[in-house]
């Protein structure tokens, strides 16, 4: 792995994790969660675990986001805390 990419991706992972927790809009939170999964996928791919990266991209960034979105659209978009 190239350590410069490592640092950038890990920083973005932490930023997206914190903002997915802090953001008030649940729709935005779901999308940022997908971004988080995709960054993790890049990390796996960088470490040579291509199968894990593939699973993370399809299941984590793809289907999970869609399922969370489908649920969020049936609730209120704004969270109270």
């Amino acid at each position: 792995m190239i350590w410069q990419f490592d640092i950038i991706i890990l920083t973005l992972v932490i930023v997206s994790a914190l903002s997915a927790l802090r953001i008030r809009d649940l729709l935005g939170s779901a999308i940022i969660f997908g971004v988080y999964s995709f960054l993790m996928c890049l990390l796996w791919a960088g470490m040579g675990a291509v199968d894990v990266a593939f699973t993370e991209a399809t299941v984590g960034a793809g289907i999970s986001t869609v399922l969370i979105l489908a649920t969020v659209l049936h609730t209120k978009r704004r969270t109270k805390d």
Binding site: D51, A53, F54, T58, G62, V66
Partner: peptide
């Protein structure tokens, strides 16, 4: 090559969705 039943199945499901 990388991939398999789980990943391919999820992509097939995603196309239906």
């Amino acid at each position: 090559s990388p991939g398999g039943g789980f990943q391919g199945g999820v992509i097939l499901g995603a196309s239906l969705i």
